[in-house]
């Protein structure tokens, strides 16, 4: 316990204490929100149907620049009453709009004010009434889901068209076919696989198309959100054209079996079409699709509708046809 030692202890401890306090002040200064809460500001009130993701201190922005913060959130009635603290120097026109936004899919929520053109401004305690409800991702996903379900339903309906009565007819037809020449059998045997494939795909596709058309008819336009891909759009257009050709061919030919079996062009057309449609549906499932454009394009829509009608007519025709068309035969062997 020497005097001299004591002095140096005092010095050392003193230096440590001063260093600690300097760091504390530095950090407090850097971190301290010497912004809104220190400067003060004025209150605004806004009611949201859904304030999930908002917390006290959530930033309020105009054009991406912070102008204030959420002060508090309460439940009033069954709506969220959010009190905002806005910097004094920021004036907000009375006709401004307000919305809750998110920075990307996983990003934080913030409140965006879209200033209006009014020359009058909100006072302390004012309420912004014009709330823009932006669909959140949950809603979008729900819509997409519904659309996908409709695809499935329509497909079922389409297969339902080939009911027991039709099957009976097809059976009869098959009986008839058995009496036809060996050539016929041979042809069927050789091409069976390809043809079944074609027809199977064609039926699936037309089913899907049908559902799309349904959706479009019901005005489920949200799919449009998904669309940006130009090539997919073009693909779809071509496909519809090709489908049209096929169905026209079918209609015109009321095709003797031999014709379809031997007509390479038709066969190839059908195959390409199937492939195209496959690509499109795959695209839609991946969500990169151009269906929005597709469904919003009036001409395209009409084309698709017409095509669908023709396909349906073709299918209807199956039951009436004697002698049966090749399409009927093949569908019969399959279903």
């Amino acid at each position: 316990m020497h005097r001299q030692q004591n002095i140096s202890t005092e010095m050392k401890v003193g230096i440590l204490v001063v260093v600690g306090i300097i760091i504390l002040f530095y950090m407090s200064f850097r971190v301290g929100k010497f912004g809104v809460f220190r400067e003060g500001g004025y209150d605004l009130v806004v009611f949201f149907d859904n304030a999930s993701g908002l917390d006290p201190k959530t930033p309020v922005q105009i054009a991406g620049v912070e102008i204030g913060k959420v002060k508090s959130i309460q439940l009033e009635g069954y709506r969220a009453k959010v009190n905002l603290l806005i910097k004094d120097k920021i004036k907000i026109p009375l006709d401004s709009k307000i919305a809750v936004k998110a920075q990307g899919v996983l990003g934080d929520k913030y409140i965006e004010v879209k200033p209006g053109g009014d020359k009058k401004y909100f006072d302390h305690g004012g309420t912004i009434k014009d709330v823009i409800t932006t669909p959140d991702f949950d809603q979008i996903f729900a819509t997409v889901n519904r659309a996908a379900k409709n695809f499935g339903d329509t497909l079922d309906e389409f297969s339902g068209i080939i009911g027991p009565k039709e099957k009976e007819n097809i059976k009869k037809s098959l009986d008839n076919i058995q009496t036809v020449s060996n050539d016929f059998k041979e042809v069927i045997r050789v091409n069976k696989e390809n043809i079944t494939l074609v027809v199977k795909n064609a039926s699936v596709i037309s089913g899907k198309l049908g559902s799309i058309v349904n959706d479009v008819e019901q005005g489920k336009g949200t799919l449009g959100l998904l669309v940006k891909d130009e090539t997919l759009y073009n693909d779809a257009k071509e496909t519809v054209a090709a489908l049209k050709t096929i169905s026209t061919d079918i209609e015109q030919g009321k095709g003797s079996l031999g014709k379809l079996a031997k007509d390479d062009a038709l066969y190839n057309d059908a195959r390409d079409t199937v492939k195209n449609i496959k690509d499109i549906t795959a695209g839609i499932q991946k969500g990169e699709g151009s269906f929005g454009k597709f469904t919003k394009d009036e001409g395209m829509y009409n084309e698709a509708q017409k095509t669908m009608k023709k396909i349906q007519k073709g299918a209807d025709g199956l039951t009436e046809m004697t002698p049966i068309t090749i399409l009927g035969t093949i569908i019969g062997t399959f279903f």
């Binding site: 440590l16 600690g20 504390l24 950090m27």
Partner: peptide, 13 residues
């Protein structure tokens, strides 16, 4: 009691 907060602010920093 005095030194722990001081050391902590240093550790924080």
């Amino acid at each position: 009691f005095i030194m722990l907060p001081l050391l902590t602010i240093i550790a924080d920093f």
